Computed example of a mutant assay.
Amino acid sequence: MIKNKDNNIENFKQSLSRKTNKSEVPLSKSLVKNIPIYEGKEVNERSLEEDYKIALLREWSNVFKEGSGIVVIKKGIANLKVISKATSIFTKLIETEKEKFNSEGDHFAKPGANDRVWNALEKHCIYDPDNFCQYYSSPSIRLASEAWLGPCYQVTAQINRVNPGGEAQTAHRDYHLGFMTVEQASKYPEHVHTFSPFLTL
């Protein structure tokens, strides 16, 4: 239903050249390379104020939909030891997975090109429940998710560490279309393609 003649590279380039104005992100502290920067301490504390929270979620939703598509929350997790420990846990999970499934690749890359841990959320929780709770209880993670998906979202997590020399992964849509050939994807109407970014963050 979508044909090559429908593609317009100039329109695509124009969408990428859009600049974010500070007036569009008044709650941010600064703009760096078109990306709004927020202070985690302020976000985490003031999100308890209903008016601030509503304004923040609207602001982030607009950034995700019409702006740069990304926000930076400096020290969104204030205790950096929590992040360091989580990183150490993820590294250990990677090593464990490599020992178990050394010869397997996936739909992103050939065997050995990347380090992959599927369902890292559950494995993290089982490995270190305390660190898991500290890591995922960050108000910043919750607020960013809620800004785009609403309050009843579901968290999933996978690890995909791209190693030096790895090739680019296969172009794809995340949920709900996934991996398709150009011919397969072209059979879906345009509005179905636009659903995908609204269903995941």
Score class of each variant (00 low, 15 high):
S88R: 09
R58V: 11
S196K: 03
L80A: 13
S88N: 15
L80N: 13
K19W: 05
I73W: 04
K29D: 15
A168W: 10
V182Q: 05
Y135R: 06
I159G: 00
G178D: 02
E49N: 14
D106N: 11
P197I: 14
H176N: 14
V82G: 08
Y175I: 08
N34R: 11
P111R: 04
L48S: 12
W60Q: 09
F132K: 00
E104Q: 12
A113H: 01
I35T: 14
P197F: 14
W60N: 10
P197Y: 09
N62L: 06
P151M: 08
I35M: 11
V72Y: 03
L201F: 15
Y175D: 10
S23W: 03
E45N: 03
T96K: 11
A120E: 06
Y135F: 14
V32H: 15
K41C: 02
L177A: 09
Q158K: 15
L93N: 03
G105Q: 11
P111W: 08
V82K: 03
R18P: 02
K98W: 13
A78W: 05
D51G: 10
D51Q: 10
G166C: 07
F132W: 06
L31G: 08
H172L: 14
S88F: 15
V71Q: 03
S15D: 11
K13R: 11
I126F: 08
G105A: 01
S30N: 15
I89H: 00
R46P: 02
N7F: 13
S15R: 03
I141V: 04
S196W: 08
N131K: 01
D130N: 03
T91K: 08
K100M: 13
V43H: 00
T181Y: 07
A120T: 01
E45F: 03
P151K: 15
N44F: 10
N119K: 02
K29N: 10
K74V: 09
K81V: 12
S68W: 01
I54E: 14
N7D: 13
G166D: 12
V155M: 11
G40N: 01
I141S: 04
K75D: 11
Q184A: 02
I37R: 00
P164A: 12
K81P: 02
I35F: 12
P189K: 03
N34G: 03
V182R: 01
M1W: 10
M180W: 05
V192D: 00
E42L: 09
E183K: 08
A144V: 13
F132R: 00
T96L: 12
A185R: 05
G112N: 06
V43A: 07
D51P: 03
K53F: 03
S84P: 13
